[in-house]
Nucleic acid binder design. Structure first.
Length: 732
DNA sequence: CTCTCGCCTGTTTTT
DNA sequence: CAGGCGAGAG
């Protein structure tokens, strides 16, 4: 392995740094994975470190896998470190190993967002909190936020809270107890419990500090406080901590990521070395310049300016389209053109968008054009109803205390065990100190109707039998038995004859079966609980096989860390991107801009950006006004295309109010304004009442959502108002 | 107890 | 438009 030949001077400086903290500020496409892998390989090969002393943390399994493989390839002798994984996977691994020391049961199950919500709803019911008054989803996100901040229920209760938070606090306390009763941890717990555990048991922390003398963290700008703390604890003793990140690509503030972690790294580790990687190896000069100019509009960044020796490349293409279908057609057309022009495979193309819902129209058009595609993300495979149903059985088998899964499966498919019976069984089980399976088996004593008793006992026996055999039998066999016994697949297949959805669901079940079989073949021993672990921690993104030749569709968030020769960013409209909720605060808007930056910098050769003048959402239509971000792109770097017929005079001229991109904006009849008082539908010509100026007529509307401005004539005077602040009401 | 119908409401992003 | 939820019938 020759570092000198493979790396540029800055990369080399980072890769050769051995002792002490290291911060690598790595711009998009600057080869950070390369540096990271070389560094680790070097630590092992040249410095002679035991690979097991190295810990490497990533955010996706895919990134972890890639890193492991690349290190392996460099070393070429199978000595690659074993502790390379996502925060969640590594934490889980330690938690299970040390469960007894942390006061946990090592067979805990992992609850995803769905399970969390189900449990929260139940807890709320027990507390007599109306889910109308307090949205369970909102409570869930508050609790999740608290855990990201390492705030436990007691601390949460002690903070000066408002009324809503006081109720969150009650739920949080009860929810946490319920989790423990269920022997379950939610996603956020995986990190938090480990931190808490380490803090409570110093000897254990010390053990792991000794074990992991060299720690690497990828995407450091995305760490939240709990993750930060975890790293901090582990690295405290030897301070051999290498973090890599890019503050310009921080796009997860909404889930607790704290950009301060990277900005203040040097404060935390004053002796640290800082290396900047600013040479970009990925994109053309044009693309990079577009990215640079856009991101410059953000304040509060460490300030990098990427450069490249790559060719200048083509202008960025901005396409105006009529509506989302037209946009889909246009994207398809451009892909075909590029393919024909330079003989490119489909896998060279990706279409990125802000919200998952946008994939639909794109899919329709791709399908119509018979262009194979794959959607990465969206509703995750392991979160689909039918898949979760089957997994629910497995979860109960592994952990019969899991009442969330128990409730899910006890009457799925219907077996005559309704609410009344289930509650009787549960009350009985709790009173007798039995788990759910035992409760079923002994349900004769629970006071059910005779037919319900029979049903419950049959289910109980079935589950107990599988639970008993789970250590000796492959996960695939257990899953097959569940599917057979419940007739789950058979029912779906019968239904599939007349319903397309049923066919899809049947396929998902078959795919699950295939996944368990694949797992059972490659794992030894192929235990159910290990399979469940994988299912819980593997995202759809990780399952994506990029070697198959097809167009990739995904959200901009999912695209981070990837690159494609041809990138399309669709739905470039105000209110959609930037998303309306983010348009009011500077911070949120800057995060949206970073997201745009991430999108731009995915492209190697060619970047297409499109927007639609009309976008159907829900039932109705929303006018599409081109995104404010478009005006931040220097005109000379842009080639404008449009499928919309314009009067010749409208072209290229500074149309109207100056914030336009040179296109005449669509003038649809109605636009929706969001105001603190709710949404308001306005249209030009409509009459409105203003609290100060009285009645008037709308002459012109600019912007949309919370940014809508209207020009209104009140008698003789014309006023421009910000709809959000004007407290208008419509009148006949 | 189960199923179906119709109403309501909601789309940001995810480990 | 779709998925969730409550009410009411069988």
């Amino acid at each position: 392995m020759n570092l000198r030949e493979s790396l540029n001077p800055n990369q080399l400086e980072a890769a050769e740094h051995i002792d002490g903290p290291l911060l690598i500020l790595a711009g998009a496409g600057s080869g950070k994975t390369r540096v990271l892998t070389y560094r680790v390989a070097q630590l092992i090969d040249d410095v002679g470190l035991d690979p097991q002393q190295i810990l490497a943390l990533t955010f996706t399994n895919k990134a972890a896998k890639e890193m492991r493989e690349r290190i392996d390839a460099l070393l070429g002798d199978g000595r690659a470190p074993n502790w390379v994984g996502t925060f969640h996977a590594i934490s889980t691994r330690i938690l299970r190993r040390e469960a007894e020391n942390f006061g946990l049961n090592r067979y805990f199950v992992i609850y995803d967002g769905d399970d969390q919500l189900a449990l929260i709803k139940r807890v709320m019911k027990e507390l007599n909190l109306s889910d109308k008054q307090f949205a369970p989803e909102a409570i869930r996100s508050y609790i999740s936020g608290a855990k990201d901040q390492l705030i436990n229920p007691e601390d949460y209760a002690d903070r000066g809270n408002n009324y809503f938070e006081q109720n969150v606090s009650r739920v949080y306390t009860a929810y946490q107890n319920a989790l423990s009763d269920n022997n379950a941890l939610d996603f956020d717990d995986l990190i938090m419990q480990l931190v808490v555990g380490f803090e409570n048991v110093p000897s254990l922390l010390e053990h792991y500090q000794e074990r992991f003398q060299f720690i690497n963290v990828d995407e450091y700008q995305d760490t939240n406080h709990a993750q930060y703390r975890l790293i901090n604890l582990l690295a405290k003793k030897y301070r051999n901590l290498c973090v890599v990140g890019d503050d310009d690509q921080s796009i997860y503030a909404w889930r607790g990521a704290d950009i301060k972690n990277i900005l203040e790294f040097e404060k935390d580790y004053p002796e640290s070395k800082v290396v900047r990687l600013e040479q970009n190896y990925r994109s053309t000069k044009a693309i990079l310049e577009v990215g640079n100019t856009v991101i410059k509009n953000n304040k509060g960044r460490t300030g990098k300016e990427l450069w490249t020796e790559n060719p200048p490349g083509d202008q960025v293409v901005v396409i105006e389209t009529m509506d989302e279908r037209d946009e889909g057609r246009e994207v398809t057309k451009k892909i075909r053109e590029e393919m024909d022009l330079s003989n490119r495979p489909l896998r060279d193309f990706t279409v990125l968008y802000r919200t998952n819902a946008q994939s639909r129209a794109l899919e329709d058009e791709l399908r119509r054009a018979s262009m194979p595609y794959v959607i990465v993300g969206g509703l995750r495979f392991f979160e689909r109803k039918e898949v979760k149903d089957i997994l629910g059985y497995l979860k109960v088998i592994v952990n019969p205390r899991d009442s969330v899964s128990f409730r899910r499966i006890v009457n799925t498919p219907p077996r005559g065990l309704g609410n009344v019976s289930v509650e009787k069984i549960e009350t009985f089980a709790v009173a007798q100190g039995l788990n759910t399976i035992e409760g079923l088996v002994h349900s004769k004593e629970a006071g059910l109707t005779p037919s319900a008793t029979r049903s419950a006992q049959a289910l109980g026996t079935f589950l107990a039998d599988l639970a008993e055999r789970q250590e000796t039998v492959a996960a695939s066999e257990i899953t097959e038995q569940v599917i057979k016994e419940t007739s789950y697949l058979r029912e779906l297949e019968i239904e599939a004859a007349r319903s397309v959805e049923a066919e899809t669901r049947a396929q998902n079940v078959r795919e699950l079966l295939a996944a368990v079989e694949e797992f059972s073949e490659r794992t030894d021993p192929p235990l159910v609980r290990v399979f469940l672990e994988e299912a819980a921690l593997v995202s759809d993104f990780d399952r994506w096989d990029e070697s198959v030749d097809r167009v990739t569709l995904m959200t901009l968030h999912n695209a981070k860390g990837l690159e494609f020769p041809f990138v399309f960013i669709a739905g470039m409209e105000d209110g959609l991107f930037p998303i309306s909720r983010a348009m009011e605060s500077q911070n949120d808007l800057e995060e949206e801009r970073r997201l745009f930056y991430v999108g731009i910098t995915r492209a190697r050769e060619r970047l297409y950006i499109s927007y639609a003048n009309l976008r159907r959402r829900f039932g109705g239509a929303m006018p599409g006004i081109q995104s404010r971000f478009l005006s931040e792109i220097p005109e000379e770097l842009v080639e404008k295309l449009s499928t919309v017929r314009h009067p010749a005079s409208s072209w290229g001229g500074g149309g109207g109010d100056g914030d336009s991109f040179g296109y005449p904006q669509a003038q649809p009849q109605q636009r929706e304004a969001s105001t603190p008082f709710g949404s308001l539908r306005l249209a030009e010509g409509k009459k409105v009442r203003h609290p100060v100026w009285g009645d008037g007529q709308i002459m012109q509307i600019n912007g949309s959502g919370s940014n809508m401005r209207a020009t209104i004539r009140f008698g003789g005077v014309t006023k421009k108002v910000m709809v959000k602040y004007a407290a208008l009401e419509t009148i006949k």
